[in-house]
Design a protein around this nucleic acid. Structure first.
Lengths: 155, 155
DNA sequence: ATATTGTGGATATAATTGATCCGCGATCGG
DNA sequence: CCGATCGCGGATCAATTATATCCACAATAT
């Protein structure tokens, strides 16, 4: 139960892109060297981010990557969903079909009550996790970083 | 990024144990049949729970498993930690050593500020997850279940 | 055109998870 | 005591996923 390394690469790469001068394309070479990972592997991750609409890419001589949106609009949640996929944190295997009452919600007032109670606890936990991840953006990292160059919030 | 099936088995097995008559031992056979999983595999999971101190076991003819603590004292968090291990949800690979200022916290007032900012967001998210999991116990499932037999809260 | 740079498929390797088997030892009933 | 029962844990195996690399191709700027 851990986030993949790919997710880590993606997040760090996006922060790096966000910290670069706007309008400039950063090549996979520079990104990979900065993160300490092979170009071939990182390019896979960047492709996912592009397909997910978080970055734009340009081929050719002065090509590379840049953010497709302001860093304040890119949440951790979005990055993780793109890299890890949309699978839920937990899914009951075959307990749904289980007729035993132990895991069935009390069907108070016409509620659907079709969900396993273990499942609903896990879902609740996942909601908490994702709410936090939605509340934090790439820009948040920049805002809290000890930048040597002058930050954009006040010169 | 998903909880393992073992975790699901463990949680459901504990609920089932909690719903059984206190003092009785449930054998691996009944447990496995109820959950729809092989005895051999479930026994591995149960062993972990025993080593973690959540259940007691007895060998021999009328042996089996029973909860080692009241169901209200067994949190989802504890179960998951025992089955999945203690590894954090996310760990920066080699970005710690990275000298780049982008990921370093502002060292406000003698703070340690040694943690990567990406890491600290992920840690914050994990804290939210775990707080929720700590707030829900095996007993919570029983309390919210549509029990056919009379529940222990008044009856 | 040609060097450069990202894309995507195919593939290989490693790590993790899921699952099974079997011999051991403990326990209980006769 | 004896033997059937049952949990324990090591060894093993298969399946899945994560990690990593390579290469042919397309797009771009000079």
């Amino acid at each position: 139960m851990q986030f993949s390394k790919s997710t880590g690469y993606a997040l760090h790469a996006l922060v790096y892109l966000a910290g670069a001068n706007p309008g400039t394309n950063l090549g996979i070479r520079e990104l990979a060297e900065f993160l300490g990972v092979s170009e071939s592997y990182l390019s896979k991750v960047m492709s996912k981010l592009r397909q997910g609409g978080l970055v734009r890419s340009a081929p050719g001589v002065s090509g590379g990557y840049e953010l497709a949106h302001p860093a304040g609009n890119i949440t951790f949640r979005a990055v993780i969903e793109i890299v890890e996929g949309r699978q839920p944190l937990y899914e009951c295997a075959r307990f749904e079909e289980h007729r035993h009452s132990l895991f069935r919600k009390q069907g108070a007032r016409g509620h659907a009550a079709r969900e396993c109670l273990v499942q609903s606890v896990m879902n609740g936990a996942e909601q908490e996790l994702q709410a936090y991840l939605r509340a934090h953006t790439i820009q948040w990292v920049l805002d809290n970083a000890r930048l040597s160059k002058h930050a954009n919030t006040r010169g």
